[in-house]
Design a protein around this nucleic acid. Structure first.
Length: 666
RNA sequence: GCGGAAGUGGCGGAACUGGCAGACGCGCAGGCCUCAGAAGCCUGUGGGGGAAACCCCGUGGGGGUUCAAAUCCCUCCUUCCGCACCA
C-alpha cells in the first residue's frame, strides 16, 4: 500500500545564526522531498496501471509518441504531455478505465541521422535517449503505464510492421515502380514527397534535394483519397488541421475528371535504421513476400551502417543478409535491402498499445475492440499531413480487411501551441542554445509548479513565450495550495464556531461550482482557466479560513479540493491526502460529483442600466420573478434621478443578469 | 492572389449563448514583518477629470445592426498559418 511509505519531513527547519542571537526558525516547504517520495511510491505500487481485465466505460488518451532525441525534453514538450496527463488522471478519477501509454518512434531517419552525427550506433542512442525521456516524463509526474512501453525498433514490434506491409502487398496496395525521386544528398536516401519542403530536405533545411531515377516501393494511398477526404467531416479535430489535410489531398475538377493532388506514398528507404521490407526476389518466381511465420526479417547487427550514397541500402553490401532462398521454390533468391519509412511504424502503433506484448498477432483483437479508437490524441500540428494521413489510411485498409470495426483511428485531436524561448522568441532547440529543460525548472521549483506553469502560461493551442516569472508564480500558488490543504488542516486551528446556515450554503455552493467548472475546463482543454479557477478558489478559502477552519464544512472543502487538485498537482495532492489522514492514493480516489442544486447560485448580481449605461447593481434572490426587477431597480437612489421626468419607453430584463431602462426615442 | 485564424491594461491572458470589460497571474506602488535584506502577508493598480460622491473615455482603425457589441455584419490595417511557385 502507498500509505506504508516512509515519512519524510515536509518542512525543513531553517535558521541562520547572526551576531549574538539565533534568528527565529522559519519553516520551509520542501517540495523536492515530496516529489521524490511519491515518484518512487507510484512506481513501486504501479499506481497508474489500469485494472486487468479492464471493464466498463473506457478512455484512450494518447500523446503523439516521440522519437527520442539526444537533446532530451524541453519545457516545451511538457505543454503537450502535462495537459494530456491531467486529462488521463481526471478520467481515471471519474471511474473510467484509462489507457495512457508511452513509447518510442525509434526507427527512421531522424533517429539514424542523429546517431550518425554523434558517430554512434542508433541501437545504443535509442536505448540511452529513451531512458532519459522516460526519466524526464516521470520527473514531471506523467502517469503513463510503463508496463506498456513500446519501441518501434524492437523486433517484437517491427515484426508486425512488416506484417502490415505484406497486408498492403496482398491487397494490391503496394507496388514497385521506377520514378524520378527526390534524393537528399545528406540523408543519402530517397524522400517521400511530404518530406520535401521548398525543394529542400525536411531534416536538412539547408540542403536542396536532387532528382534520381530509381525503382522503389510505393503504397497506393491515392486509392483512398476520396474516403480520406470525406471522413474528415466526422472528426472532432482542429479546423486548420482538417484544412491542411483537405488541401493536401487536393481534389479538383479539370476536364470533367476528378483528380487528386495526393500522391502515392513512397516507402522505400536506402537506409539501415528501419524495418527491412519483407520480400525476396527470385529469378524463377519473381517478387515473393516473406511468409508471415518467417517474420520478422531481422535487421542484421552491423557496426557500419552509414548510407552508401550509391542509391542502395547498407544492407545491400551484406551478402549474408542478401542471399536467401525463395519461400516458394526454395531456389536461390535475393532479399529486398531497402527498409521501410518510419511512418510505417507510427501507422499502427496505437493498436499495439492495447496489448503491447501480444505474441499471436499485431494486436489482441479483444483488447483492440475494447480500447480503440483513440478518444483523445494530442500532439503538434507539424504532423498534420504525414503521420495523421498515413495512420488514417492504414486504419481504413484494416477496416476493409475486416480486422478493425472503425474507419478512423483518432476521434478527437488536439494540438498544443509551441513554447518559444524567452531568449529569441523562436522554438526551443539545443542547436540554437535556447532550451529551458524541465530538469532545471523542477530543480528550482518542484514538479507540480512546472505542471501548473505550462498550463497557466496561455491557452493550450496557442504559441506562447516561456516566462520564468510564471513558474515562480506557479510555485507560490502550489505552496499556498499545499498549506491550505495540509498545514492548517488540523481541527481546532480556526475558531471552529458552528457555521451559520447561510455561510455553509454559500461556501458549499462555491465548492460545487468549482467542481463543475474544473471538470468542464479539463474536457474543453482550457487548462489555463482551470488553473485560474483553482487560484481564485484558494484565494477565497484563505479569506474564509478564519471563520470555518476546524469545522466539518472545512473538512468537506479540503477533502473535495484535494481531489480536484490531484490531476493538476499530483505530488502535493498525494502528500496532502496522507496529511489529511486518508488511506491509499488520492489518484485512486473518486472525482467529486457536483450537485447542480448546490452549485446553483441563490443570489444574482443584477446590473441596472439606463439607456445602456451601467448605473447601479443590485443583489436579488435567484427566484425573483422577472416582473419584479423593474420596480425594485427604479426606486434605487442611484437610479431614480435618472428616471425622473423622463418617459420610460421600454424596459429590458434578462433574469439574473440585467435590467435596462430605455428612455431615449429612436 | 485565394482560404483560414487572430488583434483586449506595462506583460501573459479572462469574459460560456450579444448582458458588470480587464477574472487569474506577472510586474509595479504603498504598507506590515525584519537590525537589514530575502521570503511571506495586507492594500492599490485601464486612461482622464474630481476633495469626494461620482462623471467621461476605453477591447487594431472607420462604419453599421441592437435596449445592449470585445462578441454579430461591412470595410480597412496588422500578425500568424495553409494553399498557390516546388512536391
Amino acid at each position: 500500500m502507498v500509505s506504508r511509505c516512509p515519512v519524510a519531513p515536509l518542512f525543513r527547519e531553517g535558521g541562520v545564526a547572526v551576531g549574538t542571537h539565533v534568528r527565529k526558525v522559519t519553516r520551509t516547504f520542501d517540495i523536492r522531498a515530496i516529489d521524490e517520495r511519491w515518484r518512487r511510491a507510484w512506481e513501486e505500487e504501479g499506481t497508474y496501471r489500469p485494472p486487468e481485465p479492464s471493464a466498463g466505460p473506457k478512455r484512450y488518451v494518447l500523446d503523439f509518441f516521440p522519437y527520442p532525441s539526444g537533446d532530451g525534453l524541453s519545457v516545451g514538450h511538457a505543454r503537450n504531455y502535462v495537459p494530456t496527463d491531467v486529462l488521463a488522471r481526471y478520467f481515471r478519477m471519474r471511474g473510467f478505465a484509462v489507457l495512457h501509454p508511452m513509447g518510442w518512434d525509434a526507427f527512421g531517419l531522424p533517429a539514424e541521422n542523429e546517431a550518425l552525427l554523434k558517430g554512434r550506433h542508433p541501437r545504443d542512442t535509442t536505448r540511452e535517449y529513451s531512458a532519459n525521456y522516460r526519466r524526464q516524463l516521470q520527473l514531471i509526474g506523467c502517469s503513463y503505464d510503463w508496463a506498456r512501453e513500446i519501441n518501434t525498433s524492437d523486433p517484437e514490434f517491427y515484426k508486425w510492421t512488416q506484417w502490415g506491409f505484406l497486408l498492403l502487398l496482398r491487397r494490391g496496395l503496394a507496388y514497385r515502380a521506377i520514378g524520378l525521386q527526390w534524393w537528399c544528398p545528406k540523408c543519402r536516401t530517397i524522400l517521400a514527397n511530404e518530406q520535401v519542403r521548398d525543394g529542400r530536405c525536411w531534416r536538412h533545411g539547408d540542403t536542396p534535394v536532387e532528382q534520381r531515377a530509381l525503382e522503389q516501393w510505393y503504397i497506393r494511398t491515392t486509392e483512398y483519397a476520396e474516403r480520406l477526404l470525406r471522413d474528415l467531416d466526422e472528426l472532432d479535430w482542429p479546423a486548420h488541421i482538417k484544412t491542411i489535410q483537405r488541401n493536401w489531398i487536393g481534389r479538383t475538377e479539370r476536364d470533367g475528371t476528378v483528380r487528386y493532388h495526393l500522391h502515392d506514398w513512397l516507402v522505400s528507404r536506402q537506409r539501415y535504421w528501419g524495418a527491412p521490407i519483407p520480400v525476396v526476389y527470385c529469378d524463377r518466381c519473381g517478387i515473393i513476400p516473406v511468409p508471415e511465420e518467417q517474420l520478422p526479417v531481422l535487421l542484421p547487427e552491423v557496426e557500419r551502417y552509414e548510407p552508401s550514397g550509391t542509391g542502395r541500402s547498407p544492407l545491400d553490401a551484406m551478402p549474408e543478409f542478401v542471399h536467401t532462398s525463395c519461400p516458394r521454390c526454395a531456389g536461390p533468391a535475393r532479399r529486398e535491402t531497402d527498409t521501410l519509412d518510419g511512418f510505417a511504424d507510427s501507422n499502427w502503433y496505437f493498436l499495439r498499445f492495447t496489448d503491447p506484448h501480444y505474441a499471436s498477432g499485431p494486436w489482441n483483437p479483444e483488447a483492440a475492440r475494447y480500447w480503440m479508437p483513440v478518444d483523445w490524441y494530442i500532439g503538434g500540428a507539424e504532423q498534420a499531413v504525414m503521420h495523421l494521413l498515413y495512420a488514417r489510411f492504414f486504419t481504413k485498409v484494416l477496416y476493409d480487411e475486416g480486422l478493425v470495426s472503425f474507419v478512423e483511428p483518432f476521434v478527437r485531436l488536439r494540438s498544443q501551441g509551441s513554447l518559444l524561448s524567452p531568449k529569441d522568441r523562436v522554438r526551443m532547440s539545443k542547436s540554437r542554445g535556447n532550451v529551458v529543460t524541465p530538469d532545471e525548472v523542477v530543480a528550482q521549483h518542484g514538479a507540480d509548479p512546472v505542471r501548473v506553469a505550462v498550463m497557466f502560461i496561455g491557452p493550450f493551442a496557442q504559441d506562447v513565450t516561456w516566462d520564468p516569472a510564471v513558474a515562480a508564480g506557479a510555485a507560490r500558488f502550489v505552496r499556498r495550495l499545499y498549506q491550505l490543504l495540509a498545514q492548517r488542516a488540523k481541527p481546532g486551528t480556526g475558531n471552529g464556531e458552528p457555521e451559520t446556515e447561510d455561510l455553509t450554503r454559500e461556501v458549499r455552493s462555491r465548492l460545487h461550482r468549482l467542481i463543475k467548472s474544473a471538470g468542464e475546463a479539463i474536457e474543453r482543454f482550457r487548462f489555463n482557466t482551470l488553473i485560474s479557477s483553482l487560484m481564485t478558489f484558494v484565494n477565497e478559502m484563505e479569506r474564509w479560513e478564519k471563520q470555518i477552519a476546524g469545522t466539518p464544512l472545512w473538512s468537506e472543502i479540503l477533502d473535495t479540493l484535494v481531489r480536484i487538485c490531484a490531476p493538476v498537482a499530483p505530488f502535493i495532492a498525494e502528500q496532502a491526502w496522507h496529511d489529511l489522514g486518508r488511506e491509499g492514493s488520492v489518484h485512486h480516489a473518486r472525482w467529486p460529483d457536483h450537485d447542480p442544486a448546490l452549485a446553483h447560485e441563490e443570489e444574482h448580481t443584477v446590473v441596472i442600466q439606463v439607456d445602456g449605461k451601467v448605473r447601479d447593481r443590485m443583489t436579488v434572490p435567484s427566484a425573483t420573478p422577472h416582473e419584479a426587477y423593474a420596480p425594485l431597480a427604479s426606486v434605487r437612489p442611484r437610479i431614480a434621478p435618472y428616471l425622473h421626468r423622463r418617459t420610460i419607453r421600454d424596459v429590458v430584463v434578462v433574469p439574473g443578469k440585467v435590467v435596462n431602462f430605455v428612455t431615449r426615442g429612436k
